[in-house]
């Protein structure tokens, strides 16, 4: 098991955002976590990525507990998260964004020898090859030299994914990658994510777009009011009466 989430709970005062959630992710899987707005998806992801400490429970990453570790160390260990709304610099190009995200790659490759790049900047060039490769994987070639202010929302979201990929993740946590995208952009996103899976990256995607997750995920987990209400093959989970109730407010037969 690559990632094991054990009885994770997060309370904000009287509000329980995540309640006693446990699940695991194996290498090479695509796991989809879905639930209506406010069901605790993003909080769950932030807990796993170390961006906030859990109230109770823990997270095992490759059998080592990581709760309480600083977020940058979690990212450095290969567990990388994207943002629902991409965090971009309007005045920088797509490629320049990838260079900013090349920190971990450079750190792994050079270690303290990074200091030498202050005197000889040419030593850092190899990271640029990886950036070019990721631009291809994410189908951003056409806009690689355009400013972030000039690209479409779909490309912005893809750039967020591309920046996370620069960190060489073993498990990529995607926070609502399909929200706000058109049908064509979602198709493109699916193709990119399938390519990533084929290349050995494990994916955990949270979204409320049921159709998108149903097509892509190997396994699905349903969340409602912070608690896990279903887990299994996407088709089965989507037919689960509790999940239907959570989404529609009543059973499908009554529609």
């Amino acid at each position: 098991m690559l990632l094991e989430v054990r009885k994770l709970t997060k309370r904000f005062g009287g509000l329980t955002a995540v309640a006693d959630v446990s699940f695991g992710i194996s290498k090479g899987e695509i796991v989809g976590i879905f639930g209506p707005n406010g069901s605790g998806k993003t909080t769950l992801l932030n807990l796993v990525a170390g961006l906030m400490p859990p109230t109770e429970g823990g997270v095992l990453w490759k059998s080592v507990p990581i709760q309480g570790l600083p977020a940058h160390e979690v990212a450095a260990s290969g567990l990388v998260k994207t943002f629902q709304n991409p965090q971009l610099f309007a005045e920088l190009t797509v490629l320049e964004h990838l260079h900013i995200a090349a920190h971990l790659e450079l750190k792994r490759r050079l270690g303290w020898r990074r200091l030498a790049t202050l005197v000889r900047p040419d030593l850092a060039q190899a990271g640029h090859e990886r950036a070019a490769q990721i631009v291809r994987i994410c189908r951003l070639e056409a806009s690689r030299d355009r400013l972030a202010a000039e690209i479409s929302y779909g490309e912005e979201k893809m750039l967020g994914v591309a920046m996370a990929l620069m960190c060489e993740p073993e498990l990529l946590l995607l926070d609502e990658p399909a929200s706000g995208l058109g049908a064509g952009e979602i198709e493109n996103l699916e193709a990119v994510l399938r390519d990533l899976k084929a290349q050995g990256t494990t994916l955990c995607i949270i979204d409320h777009k049921v159709g998108f997750l149903g097509r892509l995920a190997d396994r699905a987990i349903g969340l409602h009011h912070g608690a896990k209400i279903a887990e299994g093959a996407p088709d089965e989970v989507l037919r689960n009466p509790d999940v239907v109730m959570a989404y529609l407010g009543h059973s499908r037969d009554r529609i």
Binding site: E73, A76, K81, F83, Q87, F89, A124
Partner: peptide, 20 residues
């Protein structure tokens, strides 16, 4: 690379965190 870390932090601490 230091300057690139400075840039990420300028945009958002959390972005810096998630980029390691």
């Amino acid at each position: 690379w230091m300057g690139r870390c400075f840039s990420a932090i300028r945009l958002n601490d959390e972005l810096g965190d998630t980029l390691g």
